[in-house]
Design a protein around this nucleic acid. Structure first.
Length: 374
DNA sequence: TCTGGAGGCTACGTGTATAG
DNA sequence: CTATACACGTAGCCTCCAGA
């Protein structure tokens, strides 16, 4: 229902399936013109929330951090970010080779990466599948623990084609995010570092101009933070992370990070990302000449929880707000009309018999509050 | 149910032709 | 020479639905 008239702010109820839900104060939220501009400055579109708490919490996150790219302002792109949709699986398929060779780079697809993991799955061609032959084959732990292991793609592409599209980007790594996603998936915004490679259209490159790579590592951690994902899943309506959505997610600018922030974040990002020799250039750009770090799932869960807690603090959240993001029912009861990371919780209950992320992130939060983490 | 690739549509930018 | 119209190519976006 839409009513028009003069007012300082407008009131909304979304996801209502029954008339009586219009009267439920837990579902009702207000937005002023200024809040429209803060949340969606480029498109001025209306954000959609399931509950009052989601609306208020999202507004709070945007008060802490501006949108990634504000197209209205000359200084609205502090990272100097260029998005790169490098190769289209249909339109560019004539450029693809089905075997590695001299001067060829692997073509990375969305299914091959996960957060902080550029070796999540190889592509296995199942010729019995007429329409969708390329299927992901998850990397085994033994393969993950081998720093010489790289995932095998479905296709390869000439380095020249990649270089032509990279333009003046000279680093032998990129940040990329999975553009096919959903708010109902385990995680919505998934970013990975990738080595020199071609990117299929399901992986979008993020190329920042900032020279200080340790700050770029912070941008990357920001993109994978659970508080950032919480906003993403509130704003993604369909199954595509389009540029206009990504530009309007709340990310800290480079100068927001203090020396203490860098000392906390960068070593953790390095350890999570540099697990294989194929990202040696990334490690070197971060000033690290040592060997890759051992891929240890428990250790990685701990490091990611510490980063999630760190970013929750940077966004200015309270402990209860972080608890709400992890599980609204934990704070407001099972019937509260919102859901955040239900699938993550369900999958962890299946795999670990507990909601592990919730336990680890809250423990890391408490440790940070007590100054117990270096 | 979750995931994500393929294909197609649309808007936009660029180059070229034509009129004034 | 400038303004406008039009064609064309493609980046970006959206829908469909296969596969596990």
């Amino acid at each position: 229902m839409l009513t028009l008239g003069q007012a300082a702010q407008a009131e909304f109820v979304c996801f209502a399936t029954r008339v009586e839900q219009l009267a439920d104060p837990r579902r009702r939220f207000a937005l002023s013109p200024e809040e429209f501009r803060r949340l969606n400055p480029n498109t001025l579109t209306c954000p959609v929330f399931r509950s009052t708490r989601d609306a208020e919490l999202t507004k709070k996150l945007y008060r802490a951090a501006p949108v990634l790219i504000d197209e209205r302002r000359p200084d609205g792109n502090p990272w100097g970010i260029r998005f790169l949709a490098m190769l289209h699986m249909s339109n560019d398929s004539h450029l693809f080779a089905d075997a590695p060779g001299a001067g060829r780079l692997p073509l990375y697809e969305g299914k091959m990466v996960q957060a902080y993991d550029h070796r999540a799955a190889s592509v296995e061609v199942n010729t019995a599948n007429i329409v969708r032959a390329g299927q992901p084959k998850s990397t085994l732990l033994s393969e993950h623990r081998n720093p010489s292991f790289s995932v095998r793609p479905q296709s390869w592409i000439d380095r020249k084609e990649v270089n032509d599209r990279l333009g003046d980007w000279r680093s032998a790594w990129m940040i990329a995010f999975k553009s096919v996603t959903s708010p109902s998936n385990e995680r919505t915004f998934i970013a990975s570092l990738v080595p020199e490679c071609g990117l299929a259209n399901s992986l979008i490159g993020i190329l920042p101009l900032v020279n200080d790579i340790s700050r770029v590592a912070c941008l990357f951690a920001n993109l994978n933070a659970i508080a950032f994902d919480y906003v993403a899943r509130n704003k993604v309506g369909g199954v595509n992370l389009n540029f206009f959505l990504v530009k309007q997610l709340p990310a800290f600018p480079p100068d927001r990070y203090t020396a203490a922030d860098l000392a906390y974040i960068v070593p953790r990002v390095l350890e999570l990302t540099y697990t294989a020799h194929d990202l040696a250039a990334w490690a070197q750009d971060l000033g690290y000449d040592g060997s890759p770090f051992t891929f240890d799932p428990d250790r990685r869960a701990q490091l990611r929880a510490e980063l999630d807690a760190c970013y929750a603090r940077l966004y200015g959240l309270t402990r209860d707000e972080l608890r709400y993001i992890l599980d609204p029912a934990d704070v407001l009861g099972a019937d509260y009309p919102s859901e955040t990371f239900r699938v993550l919780e369900k999958n962890e209950e299946r795999d670990f018999s507990e909601y592990r992320t919730q336990r680890l992130v809250l423990a890391a939060w408490d440790a940070l509050e007590q100054g117990a983490l270096p």
